[in-house]
Design a protein around this nucleic acid. Structure first.
Length: 483
RNA sequence: GGGGCGUUGGUCCAGUGGUCCAAGAUAGCGGCCUUUCACGCCGUCGACACGGGUUCGAUUCCCGUACGCCCCGCCA
């Protein structure tokens, strides 16, 4: 089995395409086949080399690896369509010679006008094949006008049926389609032509792509046949849609791997989540390792209906993977986010690293993604406390709180042992001695040292903060109360 | 306008001609736990798009309708 993923480098890789890549990857790995990466950059206007670089990076970041591609090479290269122009030109010449294709001199404006007229007459907008039987004189006349022709593929008039591996038998009638352009007037291959020629040349056995290509499949099949090739198997997976059910786009927020990555999602969480979009097992299992997915994935269990990308569920799953992740890796990954927020400096000392590791440990399940970190870790990393106005009014500016904080200051100043266990003992004892409810002490203390009413366990917090910071914050809090 | 593909709770997904007054997850809501939040646990809300047909019986099969998406580009 040989499958391919063929992105166009015209922007970031969005999650719909990433999922297509992932499914192809899983299929190949399950079958011990080859996963080919091909860059479809025949659109020179929109294709940018920097996007290709980013797409490759993000695919690798997700955890996919390819057996053949523009960067790693392979026996069927080159893997960039812009480097395969001669192949397409030769193939077009061959079809021209065999009269399976012809030159069309229609100008874009003429075609547009034709479409408009057809629409007005409530007809299908499609090319009327008017250049199919141009005489030599007519062609010469157009050439004399300076027109640059395109090459069109002469569609045999018949019904085309194929057996989609996910959807079953699908039939189209080419009588309803116009001849398609295979070579543009600038001499570059059109998408459909390049795709088929590459799939032939790269010996792709299974074309596994989005359902937006179902209607293109008969054209592809006819092209395969025009070259005397047996078409590959086709499988069309359902679309990934935005929360409103429309096609995924910018206005849906973070929809590319790049953006998800910059928001602090873990690649293994995205890998797992994406696999569950349009595919599922018969049991209740939802958490899969890549190895398990490679084993269990199958075309037969792919859904026909479109799936909506749900950020909330991804976030939940990301939290799960966060708990599983290796601590020192989490520290590494957290650094850019903390730097961005100005919470750590550019270079980081070993003891700062150690401290960060403790912060992340203490924060625990509270972190669902890295972008949460500056907010939650801030209380440990900032020098000064920022008091939440509501917390201050409700918890700090209360009768008796000032005395409690003053007492605790005295108490903790004498305390040499700032371990979680000892702090808990000391403070609980204080509550008993003063005949105070624990909540009457714990809550103000938390707000005093963190500025917030929520956060990790109080004694873990104090212990991690250390004596010096704790005492200073207690002082700040007392000053704050009177203000 | 033509053609194609689809439609199980808000979302993802399981399931089957009768055992389905439809499972699980996520989200929401409520509770328990706890010094708070989160986690965890428990509970709760909530779906077979609609109409015909086939059948003893249909969410499951067939037809139609509605709705959604896709193609009909010198974009890919």
């Amino acid at each position: 089995m040989r499958v391919r993923f063929a992105p166009s480098p015209t922007g970031y890789l969005h999650i719909g395409n990433a999922r297509t890549a992932l499914f192809n990857y899983l299929l190949a790995r399950k079958d011990n086949g080859s996963f080919v990466l091909r860059i479809e950059d025949t659109d020179t206007e929109r294709s940018k080399p920097e996007y290709e670089k980013i797409i490759l990076e993000d695919l690798a970041w997700l955890g996919l690896n390819w057996d053949e591609g523009p960067d790693v090479g392979g026996p069927f290269g080159p893997y960039r369509q812009s480097e395969r122009l001669e192949i397409y030109q030769e193939a077009a010449q061959r079809l021209l010679k065999e009269e399976k294709a012809y030159l069309c001199y229609c100008a874009p404006e003429e075609l547009e006008a034709m479409r408009q007229a057809q629409m007005q007459r409530k007809e299908s907008p499609r090319y009327d094949n008017r250049c199919r039987s141009l005489t030599a004189q007519e062609r010469a006349a157009f050439e004399k006008e300076g027109r640059k022709p395109v090459v069109r593929f002469r569609l045999p008039e018949r019904k085309v049926t194929f057996n989609d591996l996910i959807r079953g038998e699908i039939t189209f009638d080419t009588a309803l389609m116009g001849d398609l352009i295979i070579m543009k007037s600038d001499g570059k291959a059109a998408f459909h032509f390049a795709v088929v020629l590459d799939d032939i040349a790269m010996e792709i056995t299974h074309v596994f792509r989005g359902e937006d290509h179902i209607s293109n499949t008969p054209r592809h099949i006819l092209l395969f046949e025009a070259f005397g090739k047996i078409p590959p198997f086709f499988a069309h997976m359902a679309m990934t849609l935005g929360p409103d059910g429309s096609r995924l786009s910018k206005r849906h927020g973070a929809t590319s791997l790049r953006e998800l990555r910059s928001q602090g999602y873990l690649p293994e969480a995205i890998f797992n989540y994406l696999a569950l979009l349009g595919w599922g097992t018969t049991d209740d299992k939802e958490i899969f390792t890549p190895a398990e997915l490679m084993q269990e994935f199958s075309l037969g269990r792919c859904k026909e209906g479109a799936a909506i990308f749900d950020m909330a569920k991804l976030t939940w799953m990301n939290g799960l993977y966060f708990q599983k992740a290796d601590l020192s890796r989490l520290v590494d990954l957290s650094l850019p986010f903390l730097r961005e927020a100005g919470l750590v400096s550019e270079t980081i000392l070993p003891e700062e690293r150690e401290y960060l590791a403790r912060v992340i440990t203490v924060l625990g399940e509270r972190i669902k993604k890295f972008s949460d970190l500056p907010e939650t870790a801030g209380i440990f990393l900032k020098d000064e406390v920022e008091y939440d106005a509501q917390a201050k009014a409700k918890t700090l500016q209360k009768e008796g709180v000032n005395k409690i904080l003053a007492d605790l200051s005295q108490l903790l100043e004498k305390e040499a042992d700032f371990s979680t266990a000892n702090l808990e003992k000391v403070i609980r004892d204080y509550c008993v001695n003063q005949n105070l409810k624990t909540s009457a002490v714990f809550h103000p203390l938390r707000v005093a040292v963190t500025g917030q009413t929520v956060g990790p366990g109080l004694f873990e917090t104090l212990s991690l903060l250390g004596q010096k910071k704790t005492l200073r914050r207690l002082q700040t809090a007392q000053q704050n109360i009177s203000e």
